[in-house]
Design a protein around this nucleic acid. Sequence first.
RNA 1: GCCCUCAUCGUCUAGCCCGGCUUAGGACGCCAGCUUCUCAAGCUGGAAACGCCGGUUCAAAUCCGGCUGAGGGCACCA
Length: 527
Amino acid sequence: MADLELKIARPRVRIAPSPTGPLHIGTARTALFNYLFAKKHNGVFILRIEDTDLERSKKEWEKDIIEGLKWLGLMWDEGPVAEGEGYIGNYGPYRQSERKEIYKKYIQKLLDEGKAYYCFCSEEELEAKRQYFMSIGQPPRYNGKCRNLSEKEVKEYLEAKKPYVIRFKNPNKKVVFNDLIHGKIESDSSEFGDIVIAKDENTPLYNLAAVIDDFEMKITHVIRGEDHIPNTPKQILLYEALGLKPPQFAHLPLILGPDRSKLSKRHGAVALREYRKEGFLPEALINFMAFLGWNPDKEREIYSLNSLIKEFSLERCQKSPAVFNKRKLIWFNGFYIRQKNIDKLTNLCLPYLIEAELIKPKIESDKYPPVFGGEIIRQSFIIQETGEIVEFEKIKKMIAIYQERLRVLSEIPELIDFFFKKDLNYKKELLKWKDAEEKNILEALERAEETLQKIEEKDWNAENLKNMLVKEAEKFSKVGDRGYFLWPIRVALTGKEASAPPFEIAEILGKEKTLERIKKAKNLLQS
RNA sequence: GCCCUCAUCGUCUAGCCCGGCUUAGGACGCCAGCUUCUCAAGCUGGAAACGCCGGUUCAAAUCCGGCUGAGGGCACCA
């Protein structure tokens, strides 16, 4: 199989989404595999917009698809550059809606050569036939009623403006092709009968449009989802009827939801943009999607887009479908967040803090990106609740101590919100460590206050704080459990059951606020 | 209903093509321990799979057949 793949020195592959909804995660993965294959073999990756169905296609979805692919870093060599704009590449236009002239020739050719014909059957007739075939245990297909209409009849109907479609004259034979992933696949074309290939002389339906475009764009390898296997024989027959050489086919295993059915909306998020908004990093998505139905022959699991290119091969693609495991995606994301440069990570987190109304831009007119992940200029912000100014550098410190705890960007507000609050809202029971009694807690807080009071502003840093507080903690507990001392302090500062260590938090909070929060905790205890 | 495709831990998978090296390896998740005020991260250990039945063979997760199960497709959608 390797030689089949390598026969063509510079493969041309494409991703052909139809803009009838936001970029689907499955489409993104297919795009990734096409991209990897193209780059691996020094080939060309093409984006073609399949918007033949004008009713369902929308420009906003085209935009979503283009932005999504760019965000993932899967840049195409040929295709539309931006929504509504021109193209790069010499085989365009790359939107099917703009290719009518091209389709027209091919449809006419099929008609002229008697390989396609007009069909005037009504919707009701067709439905009845389908029912009939089902009832006798046969595949539902067209019975060929209009197949042998005389030229005269066709002309009459056409002149009478009778509604029609154009059907393919199926040679009804065995079709065999060699799938690069599945191997030999056989089927009998009589199963699907005379399919409709065009609505009229200028508007082909999917199967025909794909064939014409793939030929015209000199596509060498069609790499797509397994749900297209049943379409392949139809397309091969169309290639034959047109006298064209079909490309190689490779059908990727599907992505399934947790219930093992094709991944769809009811399983939760399927649009790439939703993952982006939730705070997944492109690196994580790429790495995760690559391992859905493929793996290198190594135990390594962490791969960048570039290292994937080096390792990729169709032969190592799986035949069986893969269940989308969000937990693993989350793990990958946490991993990449931990790897991230802290300045960049801070930039990525800012929109979430703004969205959560913890902070706002200093200048009211500054429009902060409603689109997540946008580029943000480092600057100061206003804390919503207190009106204080907070520097980028300070926010960066907050995020730094939470970097290893962050799994998805959208979690950041709930993790660090206490830094931005005037009053912490927690129950006094939370201050209690194990069997500690109230007076012990109070004592701990008082001791902490005294200790902290003595530390000078210039020495107010995590390292120092840790030294001092740990020393006290050890003196405080008779049983050697630092928790009796440190737990109440940490809760006093954060109001949370779980958080980063109190020393690091105290450093960021500053002496004044730290002491203030300890006082408040004491008051809470005595209330 | 008909056609096509697939089948190793809960999930992603290695091994299968070229049978013995497999007490079936890794990762996520789960459990336990270490570290530790908590959480996380990190480290160590653990539980966890060849769908079933036949055949071929000295020997089968690996080759063959059947069964079962799962998925996909059957539009004037793509």
